[in-house]
Simulated scan of single mutants.
Amino acid sequence: MILAAIYYLLLIVLYLYTALCLLTLLGLLCYKIGFEPVKGVCKSNARLDGKIALVTGGNQGIGLETARELAARGATVIIACRGAEKAAEAIQDIVATTGNKQVEYMPLDLSRFSSIRQFAADFNNTYDRLDILVNNAGCGGVTPKYTEDEIDFVMQVNYFGPFLLTKLLTEKLIASKPSRIVIVSSILHFFGNINVDTLDKIVGHSIKSKFYNYSNSKLCDMLWAKALAKKLPEDISVNSLHPGLVRTNIFNKLPSFFLKVFMFLCDVLNFKTPKEGAQTVVHLCVADEVQNVRGKYFSECCEAKYKQVVDDEDLVERVWNKSVEVTS
């Protein structure tokens, strides 16, 4: 009797596992057909000699490939991230593949406002300009927790931290006009549904809550891009983007079962490599045709549709005011 119960229990688990895989496969397949029928490629040949570019999270994944491409075009590239050892490996790789030795590392932990303020102070004292700021670093799928600043970890790393960093570097961007701010968001912003009053708080501990928390952070990135486009001088291009479905380690902290399913589907559906995922980022950094484009959302190196609420000017302003309050 007990063996039979165990048998049927295992059978049910197997059926559920198969159903989850099939449903996820179907959803991702629909996405690939609808949103990524062709992988966009940056076609600009623009050089960046004499320019200074800052890439957060430039030691791995999309950030590394973005830093590599900007360095290949002649820019001085600053990689801002945690972990000096991994950053050193990334710099060695970039120098070897581009021949550009003007690639540097500066420590930055977006989960700590004290680190962001120290980074900004050091950068502003070291460099006289900032031509391109790529807010790329992010995280997802982590166990909900508060930072030392008493802010939800994912919201701080993905949104509040970059918000503060950009604010502290704004004078350099203005002094370097025409300059650019690029914000890596996600198509998952469509699932975001934010409460401005509790924007910095943990929304829950379930897997579903983790998903919506990540989506909310990316929706905030979109609203932030809109606000910056209104508040900054016209010579500063600021836009957000979805890099596509990319094989990176951003979701490595998901439960092992879900991570294995996700990685399996990445292989089956031929998800983008980090280099392919960086194409829209690079496009917004260098393409002449987007220098005067502001507050837009891109995917596959083209303007794309976004959640309608992003155009709500009242919401844009309320989120901005809350962000200023949280980061002050």
Rank of each mutant, 00 (worst) to 15 (best):
K307I: 09
I174V: 08
R112L: 14
F262D: 15
V55G: 06
K177I: 07
E300Q: 09
V309P: 02
I236V: 12
I132W: 11
I6P: 01
V309C: 05
K51Y: 10
V290Q: 01
G192T: 02
P233Q: 12
V293L: 08
L168D: 15
I181T: 01
C302K: 06
V286M: 07
T327P: 02
L54T: 10
T280C: 07
Y8L: 08
K260S: 15
K226G: 05
N270A: 13
V196F: 00
F251W: 07
L265C: 10
R129Q: 14
G74W: 10
G34Y: 05
D152Y: 01
R112Y: 11
Y15N: 11
T280E: 11
D197Q: 11
K167G: 13
V286N: 02
P144A: 09
V157I: 06
L26R: 06
N213W: 02
L9V: 11
D152V: 01
Q118S: 12
N135K: 05
A90Y: 11
L241M: 15
F298R: 01
F35E: 15
V286T: 08
G141K: 06
D149M: 03
L14W: 07
I52S: 04
I2Q: 02
Y159M: 04
N59G: 15
S209T: 09
D312A: 06
L14A: 13
A227C: 10
F298H: 02
I207S: 11
L173V: 01
L25M: 09
L269F: 06
T198R: 05
N195G: 06
N195K: 05
N292C: 01
L70G: 08
D314K: 04
V55K: 00
S217T: 08
Q102L: 04
A46G: 03
L23S: 12
M155H: 13
V41Q: 15
L54P: 03
R247V: 14
D197F: 00
G295S: 05
C81Y: 13
C139M: 09
K201P: 02
L245A: 13
K260G: 14
E171P: 00
R68S: 13
P243R: 01
D131F: 00
S206Y: 10
K177F: 00
K32I: 02
D312L: 03
E300K: 00
V310W: 04
T97V: 14
G34C: 09
G57N: 14
Y146I: 04
D128W: 00
A88R: 13
L108Q: 15
D122A: 10
G244M: 02
P37G: 04
I236L: 06
I181G: 01
D128R: 00
K218I: 06
D221L: 07
L130P: 00
E36F: 04
L169D: 13
G277I: 01
Q291L: 11
G140D: 12
L70P: 08
M106L: 14
F258C: 09
C302E: 15
T76A: 08
S115E: 15
C42Y: 10
T327G: 05
A19Y: 13
A53S: 12
G34I: 01
L3R: 02
C21F: 07
I187T: 07
R68A: 10
F258W: 11
I187P: 00
V182T: 03
S185C: 03
A80E: 15
Y297L: 03
I79P: 09
L168R: 11
F190A: 10
S240M: 05
K226A: 12
N136E: 14
K51S: 12
I187K: 06
F191P: 03
H189Y: 09
K86F: 12
G277E: 05
M106D: 11
F298S: 04
C139A: 09
